[in-house]
Design a protein around this nucleic acid. Structure first.
Length: 438
RNA sequence: GGCGCUAUCGUCUAAGGGUUAGGACGGAGCCCUCUCAAGGCUCAAAUACGGGUUCGAAUCCCGUUAGCGCUACCA
């Protein structure tokens, strides 16, 4: 059974490139009934921080992609050192000052080859590889040493990682050979880059590179994972929105392409429009109770008092009007706010009408709403009839009512909205609106 | 500098010798409609450049250009 690993170093926040690497490893492991290993590569004690370790757990936890085994390199230093010593004892490395350095066989030079599952046949002459450190002068293992020793010890069969490691792989093969270990399969992933072609960095690009930013912005983890999968990989059949199971079933390393992928964010629009669209797609596909449950914390965070029963009624009205969970606060505010935010009374005036018409319509509507059953069909019938009797078009009747009860022109369908709001609130808001008119 | 990798609409991608170079996002327009959405339809938009090979090249080869990576006792 294949064994995959994700080996982040806790020297910064989990960023989206790392998340994508994890996802591809995870997908491959699940696709082939393998094991997913999380290994924290914390050999650089000086740069490792607890905060970034927590950000890794936080980010991976949110993605909802579990791992099966977990290790920390700092617990395994003896193992790394032993392998380094063994290589030294075989005469394949030498002491350089106090450090131990691998002696790359250059006389005669030989060609090292491997077949990358994404990039194909790779080869490089040892003449172009310099001797590299295995152990630092303080005796601690370097990344190359620790990583290979662990990959061997943990029985990793597939190393799937960023393309920035492609040329390191030749060094790693040398270590595997020196250790007498079988070679794993290698697959390198194209990198995620910024619109200007530079690599993603927290310093230059800000929070958009951090996984938790997407969580906080109201992305669904399954949508976000779906989006990341589509960067550098495709199912080849035009599918875009895919469930977890569909991703697992369709995933293959051979389907990954080789060019770096741009994540399309801008300063004034920090999220890739396709990520936002895909999120909206997943949002719409969610059963109402599920969506309501996810909306709840975001609405409460925005300061609204929200009861579950009411939210269950509001959710279907906003489901296709929000692109992120966080949008709900702005779209559904009037359902939960005790008092409407101030709005311009001019909004109450319908097309081809004036303030007098608005007042007449609202007064008429008030009369109707005072006596009609608060159920969408009854409301629609009664208000349409009222419009006809007043000699105004339905739209001219509905618009002032909508603004009066919602505080704005863009809102969910009117009759459903009235029904959810209830008679008392609607009458109160219409009275208020009439009062605002000159 | 050396070594390596890459190049299809603005972006993500499909097509891997024969297609009007397909889809999606985003953009424009139309339809639907109580507003806003959602949905439907339509339009604009690409094979980096130059040489080969071939009856035929986005696709294979070479070169150029550009971008990226590695070249640490960072990972």
């Amino acid at each position: 059974m294949p064994r995959l690993r994700f080996a982040p170093s806790p020297t910064g926040f989990l960023h989206i490139g790392g998340a994508r690497t994890y996802i591809f490893n995870w997908l491959y492991a699940r696709r082939h009934g393998g094991t997913m290993v999380l290994r924290i590569d914390d050999t650089d004690v000086a740069r490792s921080t607890q905060a970034s370790l927590e950000s890794i757990y936080e980010g991976l936890g949110w993605l909802d992609l579990g791992w099966d085994e977990e290790y920390r390199q700092s617990d395994r230093v003896d193992l790394h050192r032993q392998l380094a010593e063994a290589i030294l004892a075989k005469g394949l490395a030498y002491c350089d000052a106090a450090a131990v350095r691998f002696r790359v066989p250059r006389d005669p030079a030989r060609i090292i080859r491997f077949n990358d599952l994404v990039y194909g046949e790779q080869e490089k002459s040892t003449a172009d590889i310099e001797d590299f450190a295995l152990l630092r002068s303080d005796g601690t293992p370097t990344y190359h040493m620790a990583s290979c020793a662990d990959d061997i010890d943990l029985g990793i069969t597939h190393i799937v990682r960023g393309q920035d490691h492609l040329t390191n792989t030749f060094k790693h093969i040398l270590i595997f050979e020196a250790a007498g270990a079988p070679l794993p399969e290698f697959a390198h992933l194209p990198l995620l880059i910024a619109p200007d072609g530079s690599k993603l960095s927290k310093r230059r690009h800000g929070p958009v590179v951090s996984v938790t930013t997407y969580r906080d912005a109201g992305f669904l983890p399954h949508a976000f994972v779906n989006f990341l999968c589509l960067l550098g990989w495709s199912p080849k059949d035009d599918r875009e929105r895919m469930s977890r199971q569909e991703l697992i079933d369709a995933f293959s390393l051979e389907g990954i392409n080789r060019a770096n992928a741009v994540i399309n964010f801008r300063e004034d629009d920090p999220f890739d429009p396709k990520a936002v669209w895909l999120n909206a797609e997943h949002l719409r596909a969610l059963p109402v109770p599920d969506l309501a449950e996810r909306l709840l914390p975001h609405l409460r965070a925005a300061g609204f008092e929200v009861e579950r029963d009411k939210l269950l009624k509001v959710t279907p009205l906003i489901q296709e009007r929000i692109k992120t969970l966080r949008d709900a606060a702005a779209v559904a505010d009037f359902f939960f706010a005790g008092e409407l935010a101030p709005y311009d009374p001019a909004e109450l005036i319908p097309q081809k009408g004036d303030a007098a018409l608005a007042r007449a319509v609202l007064e008429r509507a008030r009369g109707v709403l005072a006596v009609t059953e608060f159920e969408r069909q009854a409301l629609e019938a009664a208000l349409r009839a009222a419009a006809g009797a007043s000699g105004v078009k339905a739209g001219q009747m509905f618009q002032p009512i909508r603004v009066a009860v919602c505080g704005r022109k863009a809102a969910p369908p009117l009759f459903e909205t009235l029904e959810v709001l209830g008679r008392e609130t609607c009458l109160k808001r219409i009275d208020h609106a009439i009062g605002k008119l000159p």
